[in-house]
Design a binder for these strands. Structure first.
Lengths: 242, 242
DNA sequence: CGCGAGGTTGATTTGTGTCAATGCACGTGG
DNA sequence: CCACGTGCATTGACACAAATCAACCTCGCG
């Protein structure tokens, strides 16, 4: 649970009682098996879903049988903007690994958001999520397979680091090459080959699920990933000055 | 200005005084020439920007010299989620046609959002915008040039209709083929050729800027555009029941 | 020991990109 | 009033990244 709290604190400095509020948001917990759908297309989403543990993704199945992963949800990620109406899904949410989720009612989170620091944090989180989507659009539209892969790796590394789930220069990449392909709009074969190139050029290495980054600077440069944009440090400083 | 109001009313039924609130949100107006940047990468965005007239877009210039348009802003569209902190842009906002914008302070819009119907409307608008982004991701990742084009046409048609800027089966497409290419992650040449195919198969026709849709059903089917998902009618019904 | 999921490889095809030229409409200045 | 320039659409030839198809390999597990 504290993954969520940990992430929110990049957006705003929360006092003890506000932290407690956040921790108590979910009113119901659920475990989902790997590959199971949390929510399917057509379902009505009444509560917000908070990923507590494991990797999940939002995806859409197309008419032509292909699949596109819209976004990856890591521990601490909310399924939707926090102020949302219930609505009908036109895509699905599925577990990549076994996943534990917490359900949060709209009322509960809006109550919490009446505290301005909590509200700031939630809005920051929302903006962060939207930023990721925008970068995803840019990558799919204008980057090569290798660049997209490098970008994804940089991004996952940063996000996992934020929630304390990376070890310096390595993290557990819990996705198959087919899933990565569905995320990046590529075929499995192409993912495989691009990954090989990154390995051969000594930018990364892989053992089991563990992906190690040997040259983060180069990986960022190659993919146009700008870590500084998310200024994970600046924001805290700025908040401190308030 | 009433484009914004008109759109918001798809999200919530606003009373007269709430409508007035919305109309009075902008505290400052500006005109931007076609192709001029409203906000450039690196700028700090203090106020929200509301497009009052004309077409604009959010785009990012890449290291390799290409450009990707992230989203298109039509009259009545807000530049960012309404509850956002000031923040530094990592992309730019530019006018496609001459554009008139209104600047809205965060404080003003948050005040307005203390009225629950206004808040509902703004959250609905935010969700609508995010939906468009998600569909954009799906299209870029998994659809062919022709499908992407058809999808864009369907989507623009729907959005323009919502704000009273389409005539039944036609609308003014205020984008060059190069701009469409930057939106859909395609080259100008490919846009040109795909457009020709759509014309040859009698799905659309073009005269000057006016694009006419001859077979909306087929265009939707071809591109996987699901108009019903946005249930522009359902939502009003649902609100009516509250 | 055999099976299945996931990773790897090679051969081939194909959708798009790139480059470069041409056409066309429109506006401007001599 | 015409020559010219400019921005945009169109076309053809060619190159290339990535998709597809089809094996084959490997490793963990029942």
């Amino acid at each position: 649970m504290n993954r969520f709290l940990r992430k929110l604190q990049y957006g705003s400095e929360l006092m003890a009682e506000e932290q407690k509020l956040i921790l108590e948001l979910p009113h119901h917990y659920r475990n989902i098996d790997a590959r199971g759908d949390v929510l399917s297309e057509g379902d009505e989403q009444k509560n917000l879903i908070l990923v507590l543990d494991g990797w999940a993704c939002r995806y859409k199945l197309l008419e032509n049988g292909t699949r596109q992963i819209i976004s990856i949800l890591l521990p601490g990620d909310l399924s939707e903007p926090f102020g949302l109406h219930p609505h009908c899904m036109d895509h699905s949410l599925c577990a990549i690994t076994p996943v534990m989720i917490g359900e949060i009612s709209r009322a509960a989170i809006m109550d919490a958001a009446s505290f301005s620091r909590v509200s700031d944090a939630l809005w920051w989180d929302l903006f962060f999520t939207i930023s990721l989507d925008r970068h995803h659009i840019v990558g799919l539209g204008r980057r090569s397979a290798k660049e997209r892969l490098a970008h994804l790796i940089c991004q996952l590394h940063m996000r996992l680091e934020m929630i304390g789930m990376s070890e310096d220069d390595s993290f557990l990449l819990m996705m198959t090459q087919a899933q990565i392909g569905d995320m990046l709009g590529l075929s499995t074969v192409q993912v495989n080959r691009s990954l090989q190139v990154l390995r051969e050029t000594q930018l990364i290495s892989q053992h089991q699920n563990r992906l190690t980054i040997h040259d983060l600077t180069e990986l960022c440069a190659l993919s146009g990933f700008d870590r500084s944009y998310f200024h994970l440090d600046d924001i805290k400083d700025q908040t401190a000055n308030d």
